[in-house]
Design a protein around this nucleic acid. Structure first.
Length: 302
DNA sequence: AGGCAGGTGGCCA
DNA sequence: TGGCCACCTGCC
C-alpha cells in the first residue's frame, strides 16, 4: 500500500502563544511545589513545555503555559483567549490566595507528622478544576499511575475533545462522550474503564443538570450521589470533590495515604473508610488539604 | 514470564 | 459487614 500520502501541503501550524504576562498572585511557589501542584496527581493535563521549563496545561477551554520568574512569581501565556485564560487560571489556582489562612486552621502545632509534610513542600495548593473534568479523570485513574492516566486523558481529548489551538484539545465533555460507543472507548485503551465512562456518560445524558447540582450539594450528599455512578467509589468521589469542587473536607484515601497514615500515625491495618473518617475527624474541615501534603510527602519519600 | 498498579463492583461467608 | 477476586492494559 504505497499510496501517496494525502497532500499534507501545510505542516501543522504551531500554537500561537500570547506574550508572557504576570498572573498577579501574591503566592510564591517553589519549582517543586509548582510541579507537585500541577503534576502531582490532582490534574493530568500538564507537562513540561520545551524549551524553557514552563508547564503547559489544558483545563476547560483554556490552553496555557505557566512559569516562575526570577522572584518565583507566576507568569502565564495562552494559546486561547489570553484575557479569559488569565481569569480562569486565577480561579484554577485561587487557593493560593488563601493558603496561609487555611494552613492556620490545620493542627500543625500538635501534629508533627503533618507539620513536616507541609514544610517539605511549601506553596503546594489544591487546584480548582472543572468538576466534570475531574470526574472523568478520576474514573480513568483506577489502578493506573500518573503517566498512564495522563496518556488516557490525552487520547480522549485528541479523539473526542474540542480543538482549542493547533495540536491542543480540551477533554471531551460528558455530552461529547455520550455520543461515543463503548467499543470506541476500548479502542482508546481504557480497558475496563471504558464501560465506566460509557455508562456514566449515558447516566448524565439522561439527567440534565445532575452533575451541576451534585457540585454544589453538601459534601456527604454529593459524595453519595457520585458513588451512584458506575466506576465511582469513595476514593474517586473524594478526588472529584476535592480537586474539582473545592470540597476541602473530602479526604481521598488511596494506597499512598494508607501507607502515610499507617506509618505516621500508627494506623496499620485500618481500612480505607476508617482512615477517611479518621482524616476528617483528626484534621478537621480542611482535611483534604492535609491529605495533599501527606500525599506529596509520601510520594516524595519513595 | 507473571505479578502488580493511586479502584470498583459483585459474590459469598 | 468483611474479605476475596475479576476486570483491561502496560510496565517492571
Amino acid at each position: 500500500m504505497a499510496a501517496p500520502s494525502p497532500a499534507r501541503s501545510t505542516p501543522a501550524a504551531p500554537a500561537r502563544w500570547s506574550p508572557w504576562a504576570p498572573l498577579d498572585l501574591r503566592h510564591r511557589f517553589t519549582p517543586d511545589s509548582l510541579r507537585e501542584t500541577l503534576d502531582g496527581g490532582q490534574a493530568f493535563r500538564w507537562r513540561h513545555a520545551v524549551p524553557d521549563g514552563a508547564w503547559q496545561g489544558v483545563f476547560g477551554e483554556h490552553a496555557v503555559q505557566v512559569r516562575l520568574d526570577a522572584d518565583h512569581a507566576l507568569q502565564f501565556r495562552a494559546a486561547t483567549d489570553p484575557a479569559r485564560a488569565h481569569a480562569a487560571l486565577r480561579h484554577y489556582l485561587g487557593m493560593a490566595e488563601e493558603l496561609d489562612g487555611l494552613l492556620g486552621r490545620l493542627p500543625l502545632t500538635s501534629d508533627t507528622v503533618l507539620a513536616s509534610a507541609v514544610a517539605a513542600c511549601p506553596g503546594l495548593v489544591l487546584l480548582r478544576q472543572p468538576f466534570a473534568e475531574a470526574v472523568l479523570a478520576f474514573i480513568l485513574s483506577s489502578t493506573k499511575q500518573i503517566p498512564q492516566i495522563r496518556q488516557l486523558c490525552e487520547t480522549l481529548a485528541a479523539r473526542f475533545g474540542t480543538a482549542l489551538a493547533p495540536g491542543i484539545h480540551a477533554l471531551p465533555t460528558w455530552a461529547q462522550l455520550a455520543a461515543v460507543g463503548e467499543r470506541e472507548l476500548r479502542a482508546c485503551a481504557l480497558g475496563f474503564r471504558a464501560r465506566y465512562v460509557h455508562e456514566t456518560a449515558q447516566f448524565l445524558a439522561a439527567r440534565p443538570g445532575w452533575l451541576d447540582r451534585v457540585e454544589t450539594a453538601p459534601y456527604a450528599e454529593a459524595k453519595a450521589a457520585l458513588c451512584e455512578l458506575p466506576g465511582i467509589g469513595g476514593k474517586v468521589a473524594d478526588c472529584a470533590l476535592l480537586f474539582g469542587a473545592a470540597r476541602l473536607e473530602a479526604f481521598p484515601v488511596d494506597v499512598w495515604i494508607l501507607r502515610a497514615l499507617a506509618d505516621g500515625y500508627g494506623l496499620d491495618g485500618w481500612k480505607p473508610d476508617q482512615l477517611a473518617h479518621f482524616g476528617r475527624v483528626h484534621f478537621g474541615p480542611y482535611a483534604g488539604l492535609a491529605q495533599q501534603y501527606l500525599f506529596a510527602a509520601a510520594r516524595h519519600r519513595r
